[in-house]
Structures are given as C-alpha cells and as structure tokens.
Amino acid sequence: MEAMGLLIDYELCTGCQSCEVSCKEEHDYPVGKWGIRVLDDGPWEIEPGHYNWNKIPVPSDLCDLCIDRTSRGREPICVHHCLANVMTYGSVCELAKKMDGTKRQVIFTPVYKPYEKLRD
C-alpha cells in the first residue's frame, strides 16, 4: 500500500491551532489528549534582529490521518481547516514532488497507536 502522509509548509504555519482543536472535535479527544500538536520553536535570536520562530504541526500517536474521512475521499479535518492553508494530504511520493528545497517543509507519516504492535 502506498504510504500516505501530511506535507506541511511550516514556513507559513502561523500556529493558529485549528489543526489541534479540529482533531479533538473530530475524534472527541478531551483535555490532555491530542491527535496533533503545534511545536513552537521560538522566538530565539540567531543574530541581532533575526529570530528563529517556526511553528510545526506534529501528528501524535493518536493521529489516524482521519481514516473515516479519507476513506470517503475527503481530506483530514486538520487540512480542511488549516487557516494558513499550509497542510496537504496525499501519497508520500506525490507530496515529495512538491518539495524543492526553496522553502521550509516537512512530511509526516504518522502511525496510530504504534504501541499496540509492540508485543506482536
């Protein structure tokens, strides 16, 4: 099976947390449980006047890539609601073609509850 993933153009991720809350609503995750979290790296100064500040949505071990939605042809709910429109769902091969090294990007291929396979 083709590996599916999320391409995130974190160059322009504003950290709006729509992915986090969408995921909680879609999967009914309560306080303390997350399917995706926005990693907040910054601000810290690289040199005077220039800061590193990247916000990167990172799927957790509760991310199932919205299998209920994607099996019906819809995109994961985090992708649908992303205010900056910087998330894309697709096959990793197709997503990789959208990476050309000119901007900050990352592809995630999350696995849902990976611990369930630890004793297999």
Partner: peptide, 20 residues
Amino acid sequence: VEGDENHPVTQGRLCVRCIA
C-alpha cells in the same frame, strides 16, 4: 461543525472558536 468551502474568502478554513 465544518468550514464551508463555498465561502468566497474563508474557503473552508476556520479558527478554533467556531471549530469548538
């Protein structure tokens, strides 16, 4: 609740306050 992709400006995108 889901963002409406028919909207000319928000195009399906939505902030946390309406998502919740």
